[in-house]
């Protein structure tokens, strides 16, 4: 995983609450054994018409969304299944962070492991972000803060270990493997 520290980008706003992983990437696209190219199917059922052409009314298809790396989403984003294909698809499409008042547990976990930053903000900030789409924000992992266009900052929580891993591009499996002996001892004692 590449280190993640500062993300500066325009936002794209998807204001719906409870966007589930079946919307982020429908199950029929999980019949893949690789990770590449998965972004094409991000929000597939909202993005494309029956004939495969893009739906102009869907936010991600609008010119303002092109190149945006920060998704401002409604409450409880990413609920539903454990499919890691959901953060993979967002990343593959160019997103690097999701902001909401609440992000589902497994999705959040999966995102952090892939360098997609889940950002939880208070409802006032959230509402402001929803009301002001397409603005430039800076997310700072090191200082756990978000900078609004007027320079005002808002802090966001991020679990210490995840923050450390993001900042240093730490591979968590490598970290776990260092405990191999401790794991063997645990197995010997308890089993």
């Amino acid at each position: 995983m590449d280190p993640v520290n500062k993300i500066t980008s325009r936002t794209v706003v998807l204001p719906l609450d409870d966007v589930d992983t079946d919307q982020i990437i429908p199950a029929r696209f999980l019949r893949t054994t690789v990770r590449e190219g998965i972004g094409e199917n991000l929000f597939a059922d909202w993005r494309y018409q029956k004939d495969g052409s893009q739906r102009v009314d869907f936010i991600l298809n609008q010119p303002s969304a092109q190149g945006a790396e920060i998704l401002v989403a409604g409450r409880n984003f990413g609920c539903g299944s454990s499919r890691e294909h959901a953060p993979w698809a967002l990343l593959d499409q160019g997103f690097r962070a999701v902001i909401s008042t609440e992000i589902a547990d497994i999705f959040s976990n999966n995102s952090l492991k892939n360098g997609l930053l889940p950002v939880i903000v208070d409802s006032k900030t959230h509402q402001w972000l929803l009301d002001n789409p397409n603005i430039e924000l800076t997310l700072d992992v090191e200082n756990k803060q978000l900078t609004l266009p007027d320079g005002k900052t808002v802090s966001f929580p991020i679990e210490n270990f995840s923050r450390y891993c993001l900042l240093n591009g730490v591979d968590q499996l490598g970290f776990l493997m260092e405990f191999t002996e401790v794991i063997s001892e645990f197995e010997a004692q308890t089993r």
């Binding site: 776990l176 405990f179 794991i183």
Partner: peptide, 20 residues
């Protein structure tokens, strides 16, 4: 509980997970 694919790999390799 359910886990993602990265964690599936962690468990396959170490039989352990990093969890809060």
């Amino acid at each position: 509980f359910g886990i993602g694919t990265t964690e599936v790999c962690h468990v396959l390799a170490t039989q352990c997970l990093l969890q809060r």
